[in-house]
C-alpha cells in the first residue's frame, strides 16, 4: 500500500511536470496535423504518425518525404540521422535514473524521450524514478496526439497566414528552454553560442555543403558540447546543480 502510494505520487508529479510540455506541443503538433493532412495523408494515418514517432523534426522530415514520394532508404536514413541525437540524451539519462529500473521499464519510458522531456528530466534534482518518468512522458504524448488530431481535422478551414504563424511555435519552445539557463550559467551560454556559430559555418561555408542537415546537427552539437566539456568541466554533482538550476 505504501509502495503503491509512492508510485502514484511520483507518477502524478511526472504528469504535472509534463503538462507545460504538452501545452507547448499542441501548437507544434497542430501544425504537423495541418501539414500532413493538407498534403494528402488520411487523418488516421497523420494521427498514427504522431503516436508512433512522437518526435518533431524527424517526423516532419519523414512525412514530407513520404508526401514527395521518396524511397524507403531515403526516408529511413533522414529520419535516423535527425534522431541520432536521442542516443546522446538517453545515454545522459541512463546516468541519472535509479539503477534498479529494469530493462523492460527502460524500454517503455525510452519511447517517450524527446528534446523537451529530456530537458525537464535532466533539470530534476536527484535520481529519476520509473513512475516519475512514465508520468513525464504521458502528458506530452497526449498533447502531441491531441494537437495532431486537431490540426488534421481543421486542416482545410484555416487561412494561410495563420498556418504560417504556427511554424515558429516549435522554435519558440526551444528558445524558452535554453535562454533561462544560459542567462544564469556562463558555460551554458558559451556552449550554446559556440554550437550555433559552428552550425552557421557548416551551413554557409561552401566546403561543407556535402554534409546533410541531420549530420550537421550532430557535428555542431558534438563540437559545441565537447568545447564546453573541455573548457568548463563540471567537477561534482553539487557544482552541476548550481550551474544548471
Amino acid at each position: 500500500m505504501k509502495i503503491n502510494n509512492k508510485f502514484k505520487k511520483q507518477f502524478f508529479y511526472g504528469l504535472r511536470k509534463g503538462l507545460p510540455i504538452a501545452f507547448g506541443y499542441i501548437p507544434v503538433s497542430f501544425t504537423f496535423g495541418l501539414m500532413a493532412t493538407g498534403g494528402g495523408l488520411p487523418v488516421w494515418l497523420t494521427i498514427f504518425i504522431s503516436l508512433s514517432n512522437l518526435t518533431s523534426a524527424g517526423q516532419f522530415a519523414g512525412t514530407s518525404l513520404i508526401l514527395a514520394g521518396a524511397g524507403y532508404l531515403e526516408i529511413v536514413l533522414t529520419t535516423f540521422l535527425i534522431n541520432i541525437r536521442y542516443m546522446l540524451m538517453s545515454l545522459s539519462l541512463s546516468q541519472k535514473i535509479e539503477p534498479e529500473i529494469t530493462m523492460v521499464q527502460r524500454l517503455i519510458f525510452g519511447f517517450g524521450i524527446t528534446d523537451e522531456t529530456f530537458s525537464v528530466a535532466s533539470l530534476e534534482n536527484g535520481r529519476l524514478s520509473y513512475p516519475f518518468l512514465l508520468g513525464l512522458i504521458s502528458t506530452p504524448m497526449a498533447g502531441w496526439t491531441f494537437g495532431t488530431a486537431l490540426g488534421a481535422l481543421i486542416s482545410k478551414a484555416l487561412p494561410d497566414i495563420m498556418a504560417n504563424a504556427m511554424g515558429i511555435a516549435l522554435y519558440g519552445m526551444f528558445i524558452a528552454i535554453i535562454v533561462p539557463p544560459a542567462k544564469k550559467s556562463k558555460p551554458v551560454l558559451m556552449v550554446v553560442a559556440a554550437s550555433i556559430v559552428m552550425n552557421f559555418l557548416l551551413i554557409y561555408l561552401p566546403v561543407f555543403t556535402f554534409i546533410s542537415a541531420g549530420f550537421r546537427i550532430i557535428i555542431a552539437t558534438i563540437l559545441g558540447a565537447s568545447l564546453g566539456a573541455f573548457l568548463f568541466p563540471v567537477q561534482d554533482e553539487k557544482e552541476t546543480k548550481e550551474e544548471f538550476q
Binding site: 546522446l88 545515454l91 545522459s92 530537458s119 550554446v192 550555433i196 546537427i217 552539437t221
Partner: peptide
C-alpha cells in the same frame, strides 16, 4: 552529456 541538450536545441 550535460551540455548536449543546450547545444542541440541551439543548433
Amino acid at each position: 552529456l550535460k551540455y548536449v541538450p543546450f547545444s542541440v536545441l541551439g543548433v
